[in-house]
Design a protein around this nucleic acid. Structure first.
Lengths: 199, 199
DNA sequence: CAGGTTACAAGTTTTGACATCTGTTACCAG
DNA sequence: CTGGTAACAGATGTCAAAACTTGTAACCTG
């Protein structure tokens, strides 16, 4: 008895997310996902080779969800690079804050999953670093940001703002002052990037 | 039958640390600590009102252990403030790296305890921020660092270097590149702090 | 033959009776 | 009266048996 809806990978991922939301990452089982879809759990294994792979795919999907909105900001050449850098960093924080507010349970679940599948997190960081590098390269090109190596400078800026994007600090993002703190860090970093070559 | 050694708070804390090292934070019990000291567990309760309080005290002791070495660096007026800032931040990282290398189990145990007793962690951060503020105030006094408010600037610098002192990033401190990364972040921050007032 | 099914072995989690731990009380020694 | 003990109730943790989960296999069906 084949399922009505043909059961594609996307439907499985959506169901997995729903189960993850309700049961949390520890109690979310493949059988639960299959039950939610009205199929046997073996059907799920036709689409994903293992539970690991399913969890990895759903985590990747979640991390990629807001990637494009950030990419738009990073590529917006109508905004001066320095200001764009600031806006982009605030957007990265805002995206994650919004995810927490909308569904704290799901956020916590994905936090655990992202930590468990480090390659997914690594790829996500590489993606963000790429966007940041593009902004800084724009600044180097128009002379508004001083840097020898846009990628290296992007890494430095990313490291200096870890508190505002690394999942380990998620609890601190609830604090009302974070936005202002990020702004202060941005200001100091931009001072450094604007400065004429120094001693 | 009174114990030979009068059993002071310090002996209890030392025994607690030993139990913590051997059993981990989840399995370390007050009965274990008492057994290690050759007394009944009720004796421990004469000195500490609860297991919570005992754990908090031992955690505080651990965090304070290297405080003084850092304070010496922070107060060393023979070193120019900019260089002292860099040295101090490296020392903070080095102290924690050394703790991990010496006893990873104990470090993990204390990481959990520090997270559980947030007031202890908050006090520790306040202490470090005080040292950092002193360095920056020295720089403001001799004109080598530009700041309106040393405490506020210290907070900014502390936030920008969270990756190099916040316990949540401990796993990344094993990476051989961290020292260099901190150096790069320091350099950029110092550029910003050296810079003449900007637009 | 793509996409589903049931059945099953091996490993993991839950369950529930039993043991241990926490924090308190009543009591003892110098 | 400080600093220890022993005994206790209730909460918490442990361990083996039972139930569930994972991943595979052999088998349907349009």
């Amino acid at each position: 008895m084949p399922a009505r809806t043909p059961l594609d990978a996307n439907a499985i991922l959506a169901a997995t997310e729903e189960i993850l939301r309700r049961h949390g990452p520890d109690k979310a089982t493949v059988v639960d996902v299959a039950r939610a879809l009205g199929v046997s759990h073996a059907a799920v294994y036709k689409h994903f080779p293992s539970k690991q792979a399913l969890r990895e795919a759903v985590t990747r999907r979640w991390l990629d969800r807001n990637r494009d909105a950030l990419a738009v900001i990073a590529a917006d050449s109508a905004v001066a690079p320095a200001r764009r850098l600031r806006t982009w960093l605030h957007a990265v924080l805002a995206v994650k804050q919004a995810k927490i507010r909308q569904d704290p349970e799901l956020f916590a679940a994905y936090g655990i999953l992202a930590a468990a599948h480090s390659s997914v997190a690594t790829d996500h960081v590489a993606d963000l670093l790429g966007q940041l590098t593009a902004i800084i390269a724009d600044g180097a090109a128009d002379g508004s940001l001083r840097t020898d190596d846009a990628a290296a400078t992007a890494r430095v800026v990313f490291n200096a703002t870890a508190k505002f994007h690394h999942l380990a600090h998620a609890a601190e993002w609830q604090n009302p002052g974070v936005g202002a703190e990020l702004d202060e860090v941005c200001s100091l970093l931009l001072e450094g990037l604007h400065a004429p070559a120094s001693p």
